[in-house]
Design a protein around this nucleic acid. Sequence first.
DNA 1: AACGTCTTTTTACAAATGTTAAAAAATGAA
DNA 2: TTCATTTTTTAACATTTGTAAAAAGACGTT
Lengths: 188, 188
Amino acid sequence: MQNTLETIKRIYPLKEPHLQLLLKELKLVELPKNHLVIEAEKVERSLYFIETGIARAYLDGKDNRITFWFGHEGDTIFSYHSYIHNTPGYENIELLENCRLYELKTDVLKELYDTHAELANWGRKLAELALIKTEECYIARLFKTAKERYIELLKTYPSLIQRVPLGVIASYLGVTQVTLSRIRAEIK
Amino acid sequence: MQNTLETIKRIYPLKEPHLQLLLKELKLVELPKNHLVIEAEKVERSLYFIETGIARAYLDGKDNRITFWFGHEGDTIFSYHSYIHNTPGYENIELLENCRLYELKTDVLKELYDTHAELANWGRKLAELALIKTEECYIARLFKTAKERYIELLKTYPSLIQRVPLGVIASYLGVTQVTLSRIRAEIK
DNA sequence: AACGTCTTTTTACAAATGTTAAAAAATGAA
DNA sequence: TTCATTTTTTAACATTTGTAAAAAGACGTT
């Protein structure tokens, strides 16, 4: 659980007893490629830490499917919308390869938040960090061209191109697959 | 302080003593239209609750200025990026009219988080709610056309059109002012 | 009212991206 | 290897949006 442990510690420095309180609630789950970890229209009862593997979040529109997030080792899979409103979320999160995840039940998490100030602060930090990541994603989308974001994606997730159809990546970049092909032709 | 009080209570139900701990740290500031509450390249030491008025966040690109957020009564003005990393943020937040704000120093806030579990949970909820708002903004941008988002903006901030140059709104919608004019011509 | 300034709309044209379909390339199974 | 299937690229054309500049409108001042 090396990656997950580091992730948890990096979020907020927990003292040993509180760290153990959290760790003992984690359950290793090994899930196959294409598995839907989070399903739209369902109320989610768990969050996950990605120990190994890659995942994506997508959302179906009227006549298209848009991927708006990729996650890998050290990232968390968490439908905040579903968790906060206690209603079905809007996103699907799918594994792009066989993954090892650590699962944490949200009702356990809420209980921990209510009973331990240290863990409440850890949870605050978890949300704050997720917030600035989302914000960065949003702003990158506003200020960078699809070409710039494609080049960055290659750096951040070098293995992605091997494993994901280009149509998925194109939707993440906000262009059609044809345009992505033109971008690829341009930069090589 | 009606609006701010309601905002604070709505975030997370604080019991009276903890609510007072927070309230007594708030300081009313009245600031004029066009004032920059948050400045890019500066480390921010406060967050603000909008009691009355409208504000916007913008960011300067190479040759353009993009507005990516509007806020009004009940919203908070908070540079999470600057606060979390303790480095200068990237956004400017400008008042679009004379505003009454309640200011809260971030070092006071951190102190409260560390010493009171209730307030740590309030802070967690503050971040969680900000997160899903940002997420919704991001997703709306991916799935809705500029026209749809313009119509929604008219509903959410009916007064905005009166007070903000259309160029600003166009940048928020992700189109040029010419295109926004075309949209406006189309829907009336 | 008349003037200057700023904002918004309109126009004409250019550039970028989308659409559709076909060709080429890659992949996997027999 | 060969064949069938899927994915990616290319091409031709249509549509949308951007750019630049002019026209129209709004606003405040004298």
